[in-house]
């Protein structure tokens, strides 16, 4: 137990090291943790995530969202509520919360509510087959049988990758087109080999 606790604590650093140390521009990394529900079904649930965002082109602003005004209002409302929940404050003025919520930020936030059962979704597929899944290109994401991949494409992703590890799956997403890299897969194996 002490080992797994230690690993849980360093999960964030591992995700950060993976993204910040990569040559490619990854937008986010998520660790989907494997566990079993009350019925003994294997489930991949949120372990931790690191959101880097899109490449800042030097303008100091986040990439604008393609969402409608109504959708933005909805996102801001949810963010305000989550902010109150976390901070315990009901302060109506928080400029950061009221700023536009980009598509990838929203995708990352929504991911926190998701889980994958019995090999479902991109992470489930990678875990179930013990084999990485690398989907590069908007067209391939849009036509994937996995809803998560299609959802990623809708929110502006061009590349989604799921790499299985000892007790979960590392997922990376990018708004850029990134071709398969054995270097990244090796890094995941080293950083997320919790049994070693």
């Amino acid at each position: 137990p002490s080992v797994s606790l230690l690993n849980q604590e360093t999960l964030q650093q591992r995700l950060q090291a993976l993204i910040e140390g990569a040559r490619e521009n990854w937008t986010y990394a998520i660790f989907w943790q494997s566990s079993y529900d009350y019925s003994g079904t294997a489930v991949l649930g949120w372990g931790d995530g690191y959101y880097k965002g899109e490449e800042d082109k030097g303008k100091g602003k986040l990439k604008a969202s393609s969402s409608t005004a109504a959708e933005q209002e909805h996102r801001k409302k949810v963010l305000r509520e989550l902010n109150s929940l976390i901070s315990g404050s009901t302060s109506p003025t928080d400029d950061a919360v009221d700023e536009e919520v980009t598509d990838t930020e929203w995708f990352f936030l929504v991911s926190m509510t998701q889980s994958f059962v019995n090999g479902g979704g991109l992470p489930g597929q990678a875990f179930f087959n013990s084999s990485p899944v690398w989907v590069a290109g908007s067209d391939r994401l849009a036509t994937s049988i996995c809803e998560r991949a299609r959802q990623g494409q809708v929110f502006g992703l061009q590349t989604m990758v799921c790499i299985p590890s000892a007790n979960g799956v590392v997922e990376l997403g990018s708004t850029e087109l990134i071709t398969q890299s054995s270097d990244l897969m090796n890094k995941v194996r080293v950083l997320f080999n919790f049994n070693n």
Binding site: Q12, W46, D48, L62, L85, D94, A96, E99, L109
Partner: peptide, 29 residues
């Protein structure tokens, strides 16, 4: 509701803090 699992709560807190940092990031002036 307030029953947010601890892993998600920590991740969310970090996400909101980082977002605040990014948005209030000092301008070149």
């Amino acid at each position: 509701n307030g029953d947010l699992p601890i892993a998600r709560k920590k991740s969310l807190q970090r996400f909101l803090d980082k977002r605040r940092e990014r948005l209030t990031c000092a301008s070149p002036y």
